[in-house]
Design a protein around this nucleic acid. Structure first.
Length: 705
RNA sequence: GCGCCAGUAGCUCAGGGGAUAGAGCAACGGCCUUCUAAGCCGUGGGUCGCAGGUUCGAGACCUGCCUGGCGCGCCA
């Protein structure tokens, strides 16, 4: 209809010698009216008569509208055509439109809007949880966003591979393993049960992090003392360092007195302990000989402060757990080294606990209805990542920088593609100074795998907003590597889920766990079901509450734009009224209820459209309902185009609102027979569209609520 | 300092250059002998962050600024 009207208008323009501007058609925005409006007549008027005054222009646009309306009216295709306020409104014949639409919906059910396959193969990578860490509500946002996008892509006819990429190696794993080895040898006190073990591991990581944060704080404390102390020492000793025994120090500790910025730079905690010891002794020595040395006080750092500093430092050093606390990071490094040489005992611990994480993730995915076709692991691409780095070095794309392998991206873009030098993509480090791999090299290996082994043309990464810059870098490096697909790599970034107290952080122990949220939701849902529908079997009640709880969670995570921060409010998520999944599910349940009752009363519920259907004046609510039923496909197309699943939450909600409106205004079963037949058809179509749109979001529609 | 994202009703958010800027929550007032009241109807509530600009027309587009979040070399 859209295309036909457009063609018609183009012809009219031509006949009237109007400029060749594409006519813009939009839906007539009035309630209870169905049709299309030509909306850019002003533009056409302006182009065709550029010199008109404002008022004249309006008048002219009005004349054009009259002219065009007259011609369209003469075709007889529309029920009514009117020119008003510079628009040409073309009203459809709603009966015919409705028959056609409902015929399609009832004919194909939830597949009615499914699109023909087109476009290349796309991989959507999402979820990417780290093993040995807790699965929190932020992970849920990622998972349900990715999963619903996959469903929409497929529905829209795209060959889509859903991929996960587990963070099963890296410093977080070493930290957890360190803590496990130290405080839970042989995993003796680990609980049984998939969920329990997952939770336990998450707590282990949090505890490890707490201890390491404590160490870090201690280090900072020491640093805050050392910094001014260093300055005092340097000022006192100047360049005459030999006199004071600098050379008795280990080589790597030398020179600290010269540059405070580098005091801790690149040093292990072992070094730090040595530095502290040395500084303390030197300060003491200096204090002893203070009478002999001329001190030039600077800033607020005078001798009084130096004495205080020294006192504080010695106080810290004399704490019984001082060494132990500063040693923790060294122990974690030791774990990393044992990992490198493949210590079998450590590997056993790793494999066992990693599996616990995998099992628990699988359990959660199962609950939230998320599936993957391929599951990558960081551990599997690590080696290949290092090889790629070596290869790139041979090609001159990667260069050495203080032992690390880096890509100077802006340089390379200039060199290889002659692009003007800019300071945009900066530097990406692929391999650490110590030769160990980094996320960058692993992602390159993974991308290569995706392009070459899976033959994809398009690659989508569903990853948090904070990694935006990194992905820009990554895609540029893929370009430098000569992958033509680099242009069709897309970072679908989403904002974080924040708590009233700030960022969710498993490091700081400020987390809202998935399990805690969903169990709260289930409890609440169950009590509401019991209250609203006490007559149901207990088993059914539980089933419904499951569906409602999960719907509320998923909808809560999807209902706002991905680039908007979600401030997680428990009360809001628990609220099943208004703009929520339960509201929409309820509309679906009511629709089903009507159909059920019709059947039990022996009323025929038609599956096919007859020419006699909808042969009456439709009520505005009915027309509104038909209009929104028609809009499902365009919403799915938009989701895919913009990669924003939340459009579909808007659609599902709007549909439910319209249906509620209809429900209250239009009795179905008690209506006169032909009207009843029409409305039963409408109700069926509504139920199908609710199921389809919620289904694409990963939300089920219960028959009863 | 530079970059990305956000700023719309008290709060949380929709708004595809087009007709009178809309929902939910919260507040207040109504509607269950009629297909499920997890619903419906009504009332109040807006300098669309600020200032310019483009346009017949700007909440939307452009420029500058303000506020908040995130990022900018060996975490992912």
């Amino acid at each position: 209809m859209h295309a036909r009207l457009k063609g018609l208008i183009v012809d009219i323009f031509k006949d009237a010698n109007l400029p060749e501007i594409e006519p813009q058609l939009r839906e007539i925005p009035f309630e209870g009216q169905m049709g299309l409006a030509l909306s850019n007549l002003f533009q056409i008027a302006r182009v065709s008569k550029p010199d008109l005054e404002k008022d004249e222009l309006k008048k002219y646009a009005g004349t054009l509208a009259d002219l065009i309306a007259e011609k369209i009216r003469n075709t007889g295709d529309f029920e009514k055509v009117e020119a008003v306020k510079g628009y040409v409104n073309c009203f459809f014949k709603p009966q015919q439109f409705t028959r056609e639409l409902l015929g399609r919906i009832l004919g194909d059910g939830t597949d009615w809007a499914r699109m023909e396959s087109h476009g290349g193969r796309v991989m959507i990578e999402y979820s990417q949880p780290n093993t040995h860490k807790a699965f929190h509500i932020g992970h849920v946002r990622n998972a349900v966003t990715g999963a619903s996008l996959v469903r929409c892509y497929r529905y829209a006819g795209r060959d889509t591979i859903a991929a996960n990429y587990y963070g099963d190696i890296g410093s977080h794993v070493f930290k957890a393993l360190w803590y496990l080895g130290k405080y839970h040898p042989d995993l003796k006190d680990a609980p049984d049960g998939v969920a329990e073990r997952g939770k336990w591991l998450g707590e282990i990581y949090a505890d490890a992090q707490k201890k390491l944060t404590d160490s870090e704080n201690l280090l900072n404390q020491v640093w805050e003392i050392l910094k001014p102390l260093n300055k005092i020492l340097y000022n006192a000793y100047g360049s005459d360092e030999a006199t004071f025994g600098l050379y008795t120090l280990p080589f790597n500790v030398r020179g600290i007195a010269r540059n405070e910025e580098d005091l801790f730079e690149g040093r292990s905690n072992n070094d730090v302990i040595k530095i502290v010891d040395w500084m303390a002794s030197q300060a003491k020595e200096l204090r002893r000989r203070a009478g002999d040395i001329r001190i030039e006080p600077f800033g607020d750092l005078d001798w009084v402060n130096a004495d205080t500093l020294l006192l504080n430092l010695n106080q810290i050093r004399s704490q019984s757990d001082y060494h132990q606390r500063l040693n923790r990071p060294i122990e974690v490094l030791d774990i990393a080294n044992r990992w490198k040489i493949g210590d079998p005992k450590l590997l056993d611990l790793y494999n066992e606990t990693r599996q616990w994480s995998f099992d628990d993730f699988k359990r959660i995915y199962n609950e939230i209805g998320v599936e993957f076709d391929v599951e990558f692991k960081e551990s599997e691409v690590e080696r290949e990542g290092l090889l790629i780095a070596i290869d790139l070095e041979k090609q001159g794309i990667v260069v050495d920088s203080m032992g690390a392998a880096i890509v100077e991206i802006d340089n390379q873009l200039k060199k290889r593609f002659g692009e003007p030098m800019q300071d945009k993509y900066r530097v990406l480090v692929l391999v650490r100074e110590d030769g160990s791999s980094l996320y960058g090299s692993k992602d390159l290996a993974l991308a290569k795998l995706k392009f070459e082994e899976y033959g994809i043309d398009e690659s989508i990464y569903v990853v948090g907003n904070e990694q935006k810059f990194y992905f820009q870098q990554l895609f540029q490096v893929l370009r430098l590597m000569g992958f033509p697909q680099w242009e069709r790599c897309f970072h679908l970034s989403y904002e974080l889920v924040m708590l009233p107290g700030g960022k969710i952080s498993s490091r700081e122990g400020q987390v809202v766990l998935y399990d805690d949220v969903i169990s709260e939701l289930r409890d609440r849902a169950l009590s509401v079901v019991k209250e609203k529908n006490p007559g149901l079997d207990d088993e059914i009640k539980v089933k419904i509450s499951e569906i409602v709880a999960m719907g509320a969670l998923i909808f809560g995570m999807l209902r706002v734009d991905t680039n908007k921060v979600i401030r997680f409010d428990f009360d809001e998520v628990l609220d099943f009224d208004g703009r929520s999944a339960p509201y929409i599910q309820y509309a679906g349940a009511r629709a089903m209820s009507i159909l059920r009752k019709a059947e039990s009363e022996g009323i025929e519920t038609p599956n096919d459209i007859a020419l006699s259907d909808f042969n009456r004046e439709l009520l505005p609510v009915e027309i509104e309902l038909v209009k929104i039923l028609n809009k499902l496909p365009e919403h799915i197309i938009k989701v895919v185009e913009d990669k924003k699943p939340f459009y579909l939450t808007n659609y599902a909600y709007d549909l439910a609102v319209k249906f509620s409106d209809f429900y209250h205004q239009c009795p179905v079963l008690t209506s006169e027979e032909t009207v009843r037949r029409d409305r039963l058809l409408l109700v069926k179509a509504v139920r199908i569209n609710i199921e389809t749109s919620l289904g694409l979001l990963g939300i089920a529609t219960p028959d009863v609520m």
